[in-house]
Structures are given as structure tokens and as C-alpha cells.
């Protein structure tokens, strides 16, 4: 028999069976929707968590405060040296003028402070180098480097660096590093666990649906249908379950993330879940569709197999 003809017959039979076994189909879709929703929610949460962790990490930095008489060329030389370190992601130079502007802006409503500044003959603030590492665990190394530089300068009599805020931040940085690493590990473990549970539940549901059809399978074999012709429609049915469940599960995330919008907006990072859902709708749907179809097809394939043995 031609492959095209038999495929067309199998696909058609799959749709007809899906429609005629409406009750079984509905319950399979219900279970699969829940499973896919769990998969989607886990992925969504872990991506969201990831972006939150990243923005927290981004907030960690080292500031070098220079004395007000440190000269700009020297500072820029140091900036370039630090930038050359492999651990460093970026170094931002905040000149004395920029520092005072930012300070004024912060205290714009504080008339007393503004007046006091006006009366000063000179800008009292020093320049700042703001250093970000590629990874929070690398601040230690950067701080050590800076400390060595500072010691060298002290040895040669000049003291351009007024202070380095690493020591103050050290405890926070260390703790944050530990927490973010831990959270990542735990969330990956949970992701895998939940996905495994979703697969097992879906497989069992489909197995039950096919168990109901075991007599039919025996009859099909008796009238001389070969294995792929018996199995095909079930696999198609499983794929239909997966497709519809993916559509429903993706749709379900709309009200759920909308509902969570308010409570996730205030998280560090500022990206709320609803926004994330809307901007990544295509990817989310595509992933769930792929997972759903694969899960439905493989489950059906395996479940029919035991009734095809002689």
C-alpha cells in the first residue's frame, strides 16, 4: 500500500476516533493540559527567577572612591588596567563633575543641602570607578588587585584612592553568590522533577485510554491489519491530545500571569511575569506544543505496543 494512502487513512482514523471517543479524549486532554501547564509554569518561573537573579547580580559592584586631588589621567590609566583584568565585565568612570551632578539631583528637594553646596568654594566630591565583575564570585580577586595597587601607591607616597567599598559589601556579595547558586540548583532540580511527574501522569492516562481499546486492537489484528496500521491512529490521537492541550495550557497562562502581575512586579529586576508571558508567547507556545505532541505520540506508541505482541 502506498505510504501516502496509508498515512492519510491513519490520520483520518485518528481524528475520527478522537471525535468518537469524546469522553476519553476530554479526560486525556484535561490531564495533559495540567501536565503541560506544570511544565510551562516551571520553565516560566525558572526563566523569571533567572532574570531576577541576574538583575540582583547586576546590582553588585565595587566602587573605588578617589580623593578630590587625584588627577583624571591617572584615574583613566587605572581604569584601563582594571578593564584588562579577565574577571572584569565593565568599568564605569564617574568624574568629579558627574558625581556632584548626580549628588545634586539626588538632593534636589533638600534646600539646606543645596545651599550648603553652593557655599563651598570647590567640588568636595572625588571621582569614582564603578567596577562590575563577570560573576559575583570574582569580586574577591578584583578587590585583591585593587588593594595591591593601593599599597604600591602608598609605598610611592601618593594616595589617590580615598576608599574602596569592597570590604563593606563582601558579606553581602558572598551571601548573594551562595543564594543565587543554590536557588539555581534547586530550581533545576524542581524543573526536572515536575517534568518527570508530568510525563508519568500523561503516560498513565494514555495507557488507560488505550487499555479501554484493547479489544478493538485485537479485532483489528484479527482482520489482518499490520502493526503500524493498528498503532498509527492511536499515535495520531495522542498527538491531537498534545496539540489541543498545548493550546489550552498556553491560553491558561494569560489569566494566571495577569493575576500574578502585581505581586511579581515588585521583585528585584522590574520585569513582571505577565509582561514576560506576552513578550515570549510564541516561544512558550512552541515549547509546549512540541512537548505535548512528542509526549502524546510517544506515550501512545509505547502504550499500544504491549497489545501488539503475539
Amino acid at each position: 500500500m502506498g505510504v501516502i494512502v496509508s498515512t492519510r487513512r491513519i490520520v483520518k482514523a485518528g481524528f475520527v476516533n478522537f471525535w468518537r471517543n469524546a469522553v476519553v479524549s476530554l479526560s486525556a486532554i484535561f490531564v495533559m493540559t495540567v501536565a503541560l501547564f506544570v511544565v510551562g509554569a516551571t520553565i516560566l518561573m525558572s526563566v523569571f527567577l533567572q532574570s531576577t537573579l541576574n538583575s540582583i547580580r547586576d546590582k553588585v559592584d565595587i566602587n573605588i572612591y578617589f580623593t578630590s586631588d587625584a588627577v583624571e589621567p591617572d584615574i583613566l590609566v587605572m581604569k584601563r588596567e582594571i578593564e584588562a583584568l579577565p574577571e572584569v565585565k565593565e568599568v564605569e568612570y564617574i568624574s568629579r563633575d558627574q558625581a556632584i551632578e548626580a549628588f545634586k539631583l539626588r538632593h534636589a528637594n533638600d534646600t539646606l543641602m543645596t545651599q550648603a553646596l553652593e557655599e563651598l568654594p570647590d567640588n568636595p566630591l572625588g571621582a569614582v570607578l564603578n567596577i562590575k565583575a563577570k560573576d559575583p564570585s570574582q569580586y574577591e580577586a578584583i578587590a585583591t588587585y585593587i588593594q595591591n595597587e593601593r599599597d604600591k601607591m602608598a609605598g610611592s607616597g601618593t594616595q589617590a584612592i580615598y576608599s574602596v567599598n569592597y570590604a563593606k559589601n563582601k558579606i553581602i556579595i558572598d551571601r548573594l553568590t551562595a543564594i543565587t547558586n543554590g536557588v539555581e540548583k534547586v530550581s533545576i532540580a524542581i524543573l526536572f522533577l515536575l517534568i518527570a511527574i508530568a510525563i508519568v501522569i500523561t503516560f498513565n492516562t494514555i495507557r488507560l485510554a488505550i487499555y479501554i481499546s484493547r479489544e478493538e486492537i485485537a479485532i483489528m489484528r484479527l482482520v489482518g491489519a499490520n502493526n503500524s496500521f493498528v498503532r498509527g491512529p492511536f499515535v495520531v490521537e495522542g498527538m491531537i491530545y498534545g496539540m489541543l492541550s498545548a493550546i489550552i495550557a498556553t491560553g491558561l497562562f494569560y489569566p494566571v500571569t495577569l493575576w500574578l502581575k502585581a505581586s511579581t512586579k515588585d521583585f528585584y529586576g522590574g520585569v513582571d511575569l505577565f509582561y514576560y508571558y506576552l513578550t515570549n508567547l510564541n516561544e512558550i507556545f512552541f515549547i509546549l506544543l512540541l512537548v505535548g505532541i512528542a509526549l502524546g505520540a510517544v506515550s501512545s506508541w509505547l502504550a499500544v505496543r504491549r497489545y501488539l505482541k503475539v
Binding site: 475520527v16 483489528m220 489482518g224 491489519a225
Partner: peptide, 17 residues
């Protein structure tokens, strides 16, 4: 007989197979 198939479809199934 296949319970979810009509008389026609039951026979057609054997032929399709």
C-alpha cells in the same frame, strides 16, 4: 465488530488494512 465504527466502516477497515 469495532464498536466505534459503522457497519460500512467496519468492512472498509478490513479493506484499508
Amino acid at each position: 465488530l469495532l464498536p466505534n465504527k459503522t457497519a460500512y466502516e467496519n468492512i472498509a477497515f478490513a479493506m484499508e488494512a
